Amino acid sequence: MNNRFIIVCPKCQQDNGFDKLSNRPAACKNCGAALADSLPAEKQKTPVGIIITNQESNDNFILKFFELAFFGREHMGKTLFRPHVEISRRHFLIKLSKNQYYIQDLGSMAGTFFELDGTQTDCKEPVPLVDGGTIILGKDRFTVNIQY
């Protein structure tokens, strides 16, 4: 089996690999702990960048070769975000850690959410970004495309 995705067990830190989202394991193969609340991450080589595309306007923002980036009305991506109060000046960050991009809200009023396969996760804590997922900021939705 080609393990395209992994979920790291929150209890024993074991990588639980699987080939497609429909084959996602419910429990850790090592210790049996539930994996229900854990988002899968794509198991790939080191990412070299990210493309964030506004689903309404189809405008995109390309960022390559970075480890930490701040997004908002007054930071990176400001040309991508509509100028309204739902997007904070400093809304969220994306960081690279151990070959995985993570998104985290920076205390914005409207919040930052990541959606994958219909499941929406609040980004108050770091959330792994998965290629093809959606970042939600207020009423705006942005598709994530990770470059390798």
Rank of each mutant, 00 (worst) to 15 (best):
S57F: 04
P47Y: 03
N30T: 11
A27G: 05
N58M: 12
L35V: 06
A26F: 00
K20C: 12
D15I: 02
I52V: 14
K29E: 12
A27D: 02
L63Y: 06
E56N: 12
S57L: 04
F65W: 02
C28E: 07
Q13R: 15
N23L: 14
Q55V: 09
N60V: 01
S57Y: 00
P47D: 10
Q14E: 12
F61W: 14
I52T: 07
D37S: 12
T46F: 07
Q14S: 07
D59G: 03
I52S: 07
D15K: 12
Q44W: 01
A34C: 01
F66M: 11
L39R: 03
K20Y: 04
P40I: 04
D59N: 15
V48N: 06
I51D: 04
Q13S: 13
I50G: 05
K45R: 12
L68E: 05
I62P: 02
N58K: 13
K20N: 10
F18W: 07
F65S: 15
I51P: 08
N54P: 03
L21E: 07
K45E: 15
I62H: 07
S57I: 09
F18N: 01
I52F: 00
V48W: 05
C28A: 05
D37R: 06
K64E: 13
Q14K: 12
L39W: 10
E56V: 09
L68M: 12
P25V: 05
E42L: 11
L35G: 04
G17E: 05
N58F: 07
L35Q: 02
A26M: 10
S57E: 03
D19Q: 12
A34M: 09
F61H: 11
